[in-house]
Simulated assay, not measured.
Amino acid sequence: MTQPILTLKDVVVEFPGLRGLKGLMAPPEQRHVQAVAGISLDVQPGETVAIVGESGSGKTTLARAINGLVPLAGGEVWFDGMPLHERPDWHAVRRRVAMMFQDPSGSLSPRKTVRDLVLEPFAIHGIKLNDPGAKAADLLATAGLGPDFLARYPHQLSGGQARRVGVARALALDPAMVLADEPTAGLDVSIQGEILNLLNRIKTQHGLTTVIITHNLNILRHVADRVAVMYLGRIVELGEVEQILSTPAHPYTRALMAANPEPDPTARHERITLKGETPALNARPSGCEFHPRCPVARPECAERAPLLGPTPGAGQVACHFPIHKDETNNA
Rank of each mutant, 00 (worst) to 15 (best):
A168N: 08
R115P: 05
F101M: 13
P322W: 01
H32C: 13
C301D: 12
R201S: 13
L245P: 11
I66R: 03
E14L: 05
P27S: 12
T61S: 11
I51Y: 00
V211P: 04
Q316N: 02
T61W: 00
A176W: 07
V11W: 06
S55M: 09
T210I: 02
G146D: 14
L108I: 02
Q3F: 05
P88I: 08
L108Y: 02
E289N: 00
P312L: 04
I323F: 09
R87A: 15
D174Q: 15
G233C: 00
A63W: 12
A143N: 03
T253G: 05
D116H: 08
G166S: 10
P285Y: 00
I244S: 03
I323P: 04
H32N: 14
I51N: 00
R271L: 14
E76L: 02
A35F: 01
Q44S: 14
I213Q: 00
E47Y: 06
A136R: 08
V241H: 07
G68N: 13
A92C: 03
N216C: 11
L6W: 03
E277C: 01
L41Q: 07
R95D: 07
D89S: 10
R221K: 13
T7W: 01
L307E: 14
A37G: 01
C294R: 05
R31A: 04
G276M: 03
A318I: 00
A37K: 01
E54M: 06
R152T: 11
N282I: 06
E300V: 08
L117Q: 11
D148I: 09
P45N: 13
L217K: 07
G287T: 00
T60I: 03
L217V: 09
N330W: 13
V317H: 00
Y252E: 01
P83L: 04
G146I: 02
V211H: 05
K112F: 15
E182S: 14
A172F: 04
E327S: 12
P88Y: 08
T61E: 02
A305G: 11
Q316H: 06
G287A: 02
G126K: 12
A151G: 14
R96Y: 07
F79L: 11
S246V: 11
H155E: 10
E47D: 09
A302F: 13
L157D: 15
M1W: 12
R271H: 15
H250N: 13
V296K: 11
I127C: 09
A141K: 13
L21R: 11
T61Y: 02
A50S: 09
A331N: 15
T2H: 10
D89F: 10
V13S: 02
L72M: 13
L171S: 09
M99W: 12
E194K: 12
A92T: 04
D174A: 15
S190L: 08
E300Q: 07
P104S: 08
R268V: 10
H222A: 12
T209V: 10
L108R: 03
A98W: 05
V43D: 03
L108Q: 02
A168V: 02
L139M: 14
Q243W: 09
A123C: 14
F79N: 13
A331D: 15
A280F: 08
Q30G: 03
I66K: 05
N330A: 15
R268W: 06
D89C: 06
